[in-house]
Lab assay of single mutants.
Amino acid sequence: MRVFPVYAPKLIVKHARIFLTGVIWVKDLGRLEFEKGRFLLPRKSLPKVKQAILELNELIEAQN
């Protein structure tokens, strides 16, 4: 598990694309899981977490 002390979308996306499957922890967002290079949306999450995951997945799609 990698810990990101700040929310840096480009760096987080780079990590997810390299490792494809895993878990990261982002300060103020908490634990985020990714599989096959995409972030998974938890069943229950705060609106800011949901927005961050959608933003990260959009960045991943834009890079493909």
Results as ranks from 00 to 15, higher is better:
Ile18Gly: 06
Tyr7Ala: 00
Trp25Cys: 15
Thr21Arg: 10
Leu56Gly: 01
Leu20Ile: 10
Leu41Cys: 12
Ala62Thr: 10
Ile24Thr: 01
Ile18Pro: 01
Glu35Ile: 12
Ile53Leu: 06
Lys44Tyr: 10
Ile18Tyr: 15
Ala52Asn: 02
Ile12Asn: 02
Lys10Trp: 11
Asn57Met: 03
Ser45Cys: 12
Asp28Asn: 14
Gly22Pro: 02
Ile12Gly: 00
Asp28Thr: 13
Ala8Gly: 03
Glu55Phe: 09
Lys50Gln: 08
Ala8Pro: 00
Gln51Val: 08
Pro9Asn: 02
Arg43Leu: 09
Lys48Cys: 11
Lys14Cys: 14
Ala62His: 10
Arg38Tyr: 07
Ile53Trp: 04
Leu11His: 08
Leu32Arg: 00
Val26Thr: 02
Pro9Glu: 03
Gly37Trp: 02
Ala62Cys: 12
Ile12Asp: 02
Glu58Arg: 07
Pro5Phe: 15
Leu29Lys: 03
Glu33Asp: 15
Leu20Thr: 09
Ala16Cys: 09
Ser45Val: 13
Leu11Phe: 05
Lys14Ile: 12
Glu58Met: 10
Ala52Phe: 02
Glu55Thr: 05
Thr21Phe: 08
Asn57Gly: 02
Ser45Leu: 07
Val6His: 06
Lys44Gly: 06
Ile24Arg: 00
Gly30Ile: 02
Leu29Tyr: 05
Val23Gln: 14
Gln51Thr: 10
Leu11Val: 07
Glu33Arg: 15
Pro5Ile: 14
Ile24His: 00
Phe34Cys: 04
Lys48Leu: 07
Asp28Gly: 14
Ala8His: 11
Ile60Gln: 05
Leu32Ile: 14
Arg2Pro: 15
Val3Gly: 08
Asn57Trp: 03
Leu11Asp: 13
Glu61Asp: 11
Ser45Ile: 11
Lys36Gly: 11
Gln63Thr: 11
Val3Phe: 15
Val23Trp: 06
His15Asn: 01
Glu35Leu: 11
Trp25Ala: 05
Thr21Cys: 14
Pro47Val: 12
Ile24Ala: 04
Lys50Thr: 07
Lys27Gly: 13
Ile53Arg: 00
Leu59Met: 12
Val49Ala: 05
Arg43Pro: 13
Gln51Gly: 10
Val3Cys: 15
Leu59Val: 08
Gly22Glu: 02
Tyr7Met: 03
Leu59Ile: 09
Lys48Thr: 07
Ile18Trp: 12
Asn64Gly: 09
Val3Ala: 05
Asn64His: 09
Glu55Tyr: 09
Ala52Val: 07
Phe39Lys: 06
His15Met: 04
Ile60Pro: 00
Phe4Gly: 01
Phe19Asp: 10
Glu61Gly: 07
Phe19Glu: 15
Ala62Ile: 10
Phe34Gln: 00
Leu20Glu: 12
Ile24Asn: 00
Val23Met: 08
Asp28Met: 12
Glu35Ser: 12
Leu29Asn: 00
Arg38Cys: 12
Phe4Val: 02
His15Asp: 02
Val26Met: 01
Arg38Val: 11
Phe4Glu: 01
Phe34Trp: 04
Val13Ile: 08
Lys14Val: 11
Gly30Gln: 01
Gly22Ile: 04
Ser45Gln: 09
Ala8Cys: 14
Leu11Gly: 06
Trp25Leu: 13
Pro42Ile: 05
Lys36Ile: 04
Pro9Met: 03
Lys27Asp: 15
Leu11Ser: 10
Pro42Val: 07
Ser45Phe: 07
Ser45Lys: 09
Lys48Met: 08
Glu55Val: 06
Ile60Asn: 05
Ala52Glu: 01
Glu58Val: 11
Phe19Asn: 11
Asn57Val: 03
Phe39Leu: 03
Val3Gln: 14
Arg2Phe: 15
Ala62Val: 12
Leu46Ala: 12
Gly30Leu: 02
Val23Lys: 15
Arg38Gly: 06
Lys14His: 13
Lys14Asp: 13
Pro47Leu: 13
Glu58Trp: 10
Arg31Thr: 05
Arg31His: 04
Ile18Cys: 14
Lys44Ile: 05
Pro47Gln: 13
Phe34His: 03
Val26Trp: 05
Lys14Tyr: 08
Ala52Cys: 09
Ile18Asp: 10
Ile18Met: 06
Ala8Asp: 09
Asp28Pro: 13
Lys10Met: 13
Lys44Thr: 06
Glu58Phe: 08
Leu40Phe: 05
Lys36Phe: 08
Glu35Gln: 13
Val49Asn: 03
Leu46Thr: 10
Gly30His: 02
Asn57Phe: 04
Arg2Tyr: 15
Val13Asp: 00
Glu58Gly: 06
Met1Ile: 15
Gln63Arg: 07
Gly22Leu: 03
Leu20His: 07
Glu61Ile: 11
Leu56His: 00
Pro9Tyr: 01
Arg31Tyr: 11
Pro42Gln: 05
Ser45Gly: 08
Leu32Asp: 03
